[in-house]
Amino acid sequence: MALNLDNIVRHPGRAASEQIVETADKDLFLQLLVPVKKHLYNFIRKSMNFSQEADDIFQDTLLKSFRYFHSFKRDKSFKTWIFTIAHNLLKDHFKTGRGLVLIEDADGLPVDEDPSIPRDVRDIYQAAAGLRPRQREIFYLYYYNEFKVPEIVRITGLTRVNVKFILHQARKAVKEIMEVGQ
């Protein structure tokens, strides 16, 4: 995707503190968002076991990322940056205790009701639903969003060793759950 960074126009006569975000910034933000948003939305839904609250977290992620768009370094990956914001909001969500009842109060995995979804796909979501929130998040970052370990390190702020360990635990748990189901 070709981006024209020259579109960012600010008022030359104003001090930096008085500058407002121009339409060009908004356009650029929305432009960068296009290839990412569907994966971001599905990542949040999957990480939250398809809870309806996922829509709120997704909305908050977009608003917050737009609010802090000025701090985004244009030479970095926008995808990694916006997923970092999503991770922080998910972390806050689980930390406040709302996430603790998520599995029990989840609105139900859509795979449970849809007969067109193959059983092996259903199994994997049911297995992931049993993971701890942090494990589930890293599981989906790796398997669904296909982030590499160094990228997950940047997103989560965890160490490389920690990410690998959590990923190993998640993989092992999913494998066990899948084997039991067979």
Binding site: K26, Y41, N42, D55, Q59, L63, V111, V121
Partner: peptide, 24 residues
């Protein structure tokens, strides 16, 4: 695992995107 996890994807509800753009 990747194949199975990617098998289920949902589009963003139109209303959700509209609300976001309105808020902006």
């Amino acid at each position: 695992i990747k194949k199975r996890v990617r098998a289920l994807e949902q589009d963003i509800p139109a209303g959700l995107e509209e609300t976001f753009l309105e808020k902006l």
